[in-house]
Structures are given as C-alpha cells and as structure tokens.
C-alpha cells in the first residue's frame, strides 16, 4: 500500500517537473504580458521606468471611446474578417472536394496549393504589392494591354479597392489552409454512406448537401474559428501592403495598436487598444473552446 502511494507521488512529482518549464515560458511570454498590458492601460508611465507609474483609472479607455481612428480600425478589422472568411470557406470547401478526387498529379497539385499558406505573409504581401503596382504592376499591364481598361487602376490608392486588394491576398493565402482541415474531415466520412445514398438515387448535389455538408460541420467550425481569429489580429498584411492607407481605409486594429505604441510611443494608450483587441479575440476563443467541448 505504501509503495503504491509513493509511486503515485513520484508520478505526480515527475509530471509537475516535466510540465513546469513549458508553463513557466508560457506564463512569462503570454500571460504576464497580458496582465502587464492591463496594468499599463490603467496608468501613466514611462518605458524605461524613469517616471513612477501613476494610476489614471479609465482615462485611456475614455479617450479610446471618443477616438475615431480606433473605431475606424475596429470597423476595418471586422469588414476585412467578414469579407475574407466566407470567400475562404467557399474556396476551401471547393478545393477540399477537388483534392478528395483521385487524379494524376494530385500530390503536386496539393503542394502548389499549399505553398501560399506556407510562405511568410509579410513576403507574400510584398509580391502582391508589386503585382498591384499602378506604374509597373502585372495586373495593370495585363488589363491595359488586353484593353479591359484604358487607364491604370490604382489598386492600393483607392479606399474601396485597397480593402478589396487586401481581401484577395488573404483569400489567396489561406483558402488552402481551410481546404486542408476540411479535407481531413472529408476523408473520415465512411464510403458506404455515399453508396447508400447512391442506392437511394441521390444526385451529386443531394449527396453533397445531405451527407457531406452535415458531417463536415465540425471541421468547418474549427477552420472558421481559427481563421477568423487570425483575421481579427491581421497585422503584417496591411503593414506591408498599404501601411493602413489610403486614409486609414485598411488600418487594422493590430496595425493601429502598433502605430500608437511604436510610432507615437504612447505605451499606456496603446495598451488600452491592445486590451480591447484582446477582449474581442478572447471572446472568440471562448466560443472556440466551448464549441470544441460540445463536439466531443
């Protein structure tokens, strides 16, 4: 009896020993900074600690509520998310269905589709910025030479077009990620379900809406939530494509927070911006965890 006790204790102690370094790093890099951001957002301080921290209560949050640029950034972030996610989902489902077929060169095709996702967003974005260029860009070259337009399109210089251009880059990059997750779900659907459907005389479309789609609910939900949280914190895409312009039409919340902190060097107000952004995304992540719990 006492031997089992000591074994259990040893197991527990070893477990704690194994877990501690990871928990420590996560606490230092992820958890403590969030707490510190909250503290910073309620006060006035200097970066190097030369001025003592002064509690100012909700002052920065009050400023934030009256800050048009913050509301603009929030709107940009939501618009970008709402426009890109449905497109990515649609294309993702299409690509997944395609990759679920068997055909020659499938491995190669899947690889080509995976590349945009695997490459750094910052560098992807630079390539697109070059293609969008209104003086030397590929798109304007093709459009002008083929006679589609008679004047170069200013893709990144127009408020509406710039948002559209940004959405296109995001969709191009991440549809394949959506497709991968959905494809894994597709492959776990038992074949005989489709055979049963065919016996009942179902058309391809009925098969898709009545068998495939309902069974893909889980993977689609996961893909949607991972991607929307990614979209809600988008940073290097507008940073490299437009720097938030023209007139802040593509300035995401992350980009605005970055500018407040590192261009205007206002750490305390910047902290208030990131805390609000954190709350928005945290609400999303709660839904995520909740949805996953229900799935099991």
């Amino acid at each position: 009896m006492s031997r089992t006790m000591s074994l259990e204790r040893r197991t527990a102690l070893t477990g704690i020993g194994f877990v501690t370094p990871t928990v420590l790093i996560i606490a230092l890099i992820l958890i403590y900074p969030i707490i510190q951001s909250v503290v910073l957002s309620f006060g006035q301080s200097s970066i190097d600690g030369s001025q003592p921290y002064q509690f100012v209560g909700l002052k920065h949050y009050a400023t934030l509520m009256g800050d048009g640029r913050f509301w603009n950034a929030l709107g940009v972030t939501f618009t970008f998310t709402a426009l890109s996610i449905p497109l990515e989902l649609g294309l993702g489902i299409g690509l997944a269905l395609l990759m679920n077929e068997s055909f020659k060169g499938k491995g190669l095709a899947r690889l080509a589709v995976l590349f945009p996702w695997a490459l750094p967003t910052a560098l992807n974005t630079l390539i697109w910025r070059w293609m969008y260029n209104s003086d030397y860009g590929l798109f304007n070259g093709v459009a002008l030479q083929s006679g589609l337009v008679d004047r170069p399109i200013n893709f990144l210089g127009d408020e509406v077009l710039a948002m559209g251009s940004m959405v296109v880059v995001a969709v191009w990059k991440t549809s394949s990620f959506m497709a991968l997750i959905i494809l894994a779900g597709l492959q776990s659907i038992p074949r005989d379900l489709f055979e049963a459907g065919r016996m009942d005389g179902m058309s391809k479309w009925q098969e898709f809406t009545q068998i495939t789609l309902p069974l893909l609910k889980g993977p689609i939900l996961v893909a949607l939530i991972i991607r929307s949280m990614d979209a809600l914190r988008t940073f290097e895409l507008p940073f490299n494509l437009t720097d938030g312009g023209p007139v802040n039409a593509t300035e995401s919340l992350s980009l605005y927070a970055y500018k407040v902190i590192f261009d205007f060097l206002d750490f305390n107000f910047g902290a208030a911006v990131v805390v609000v952004q954190f709350l928005v995304i945290f609400a999303m992540s709660l839904i995520y965890v909740f949805a996953l719990r229900n799935k099991d």
Partner: peptide
C-alpha cells in the same frame, strides 16, 4: 494552453518590449 495560444501577438508588444528592453 489552447486558450492562451489564441492571444493576439500585438497585445503582448507593449509589455514584452518594455521588459526585454529592461
């Protein structure tokens, strides 16, 4: 661990920059 992995990296910046500086 799953929940903290969803923190937006930008929300870590003011604190991480300050602490790393010091």
């Amino acid at each position: 661990i799953l929940a903290v992995s969803m923190f937006p990296p930008v929300s870590l910046l003011p604190s991480l920059f300050q602490n790393f500086l010091n």
